[in-house]
């Protein structure tokens, strides 16, 4: 990692100053982007905490009130969808999606940059495609009128995160491509330079 930074001619600290990361894209765009980031991370944290609360409540209900919460399982299912799809976009923003970078890492900078732009564009395309497919799928579920057996709410409600998550992820990758075209360094995401970093970036 040290060599990579030297090669790029910049230090990680300088580039990853939190204030700069908050809105690495300039102006109003950056503000909206950072707002979305905040919202995604809020949904993520809340989703996880609600899941813990819901599961504990079920245990307490069963032992203290002799009554299982019949909806616990469904609520957790809703939350896991929320966590996954709110998290996909957030992970894209943080450059945390899992990849096999061995060959990529061995390439010279110019090649890496070209490859990163290709990867970002293709990934963005796939995400937008899946966003479109998930809208189509939700349409089908909506038309069928299927409801959750315990909560009796329409099933499609719990899927609305899916297209949203795909769209936000696609957008992030698209912006990453733009960023890589505009800037000198190679970026894993709009806010993260390539290279593995042990410090978490907080938004």
């Amino acid at each position: 990692m040290e060599t990579k930074l030297a090669e790029n001619g910049t230090s990680l600290d300088e580039k990853q100053d939190p204030k700069r990361i908050c809105s690495s894209l300039l102006g109003i765009q950056g503000k909206i982007d950072s707002l979305i980031g905040r919202f995604e991370s809020f949904m993520l944290a809340t989703g996880v905490l609600l899941m813990a609360g819901n599961t504990v409540a079920n245990v307490i209900g069963r032992y203290i009130f002799q009554h299982s919460l019949f909806f616990t399982e469904e609520v957790n299912r809703i939350l896991i969808i929320l966590i996954t799809f709110a998290g996909v976009g957030y992970a894209a923003r943080q450059g945390r999606h899992i990849r096999m970078s061995a060959i990529y890492d061995a390439l010279p900078v110019r090649m890496r940059k070209f490859l990163m732009i290709t990867i970002s564009v293709v990934t963005a395309g796939m995400m937008f495609l899946l966003c479109y497919f998930s809208l189509a799928y939700i349409g089908k579920v909506m038309a069928s009128g299927r409801v959750l057996p315990a909560l009796q709410i329409p099933v499609w409600w719990i899927f609305v995160w899916v297209p949203l998550g795909f769209f936000m992820t696609g957008l992030q990758y698209l912006l990453t491509a733009v960023k890589n075209i505009l800037e000198k360094d190679v970026y894993l995401s709009t806010s993260v330079l390539e290279g593995y970093d042990d410090t978490e970036i907080e938004i």
Binding site: Q66, S68, F70, E73, E74, P149, A150, Q152
Partner: peptide, 20 residues
């Protein structure tokens, strides 16, 4: 996980526990 089945076992006096 079916509301009527939950009702049945509630009526039978058990603690219906929906599990996958």
């Amino acid at each position: 996980t079916n509301p009527l089945l939950v009702e049945s076992y509630k009526a039978f006096g058990a603690i219906p526990t929906p599990l996958p």
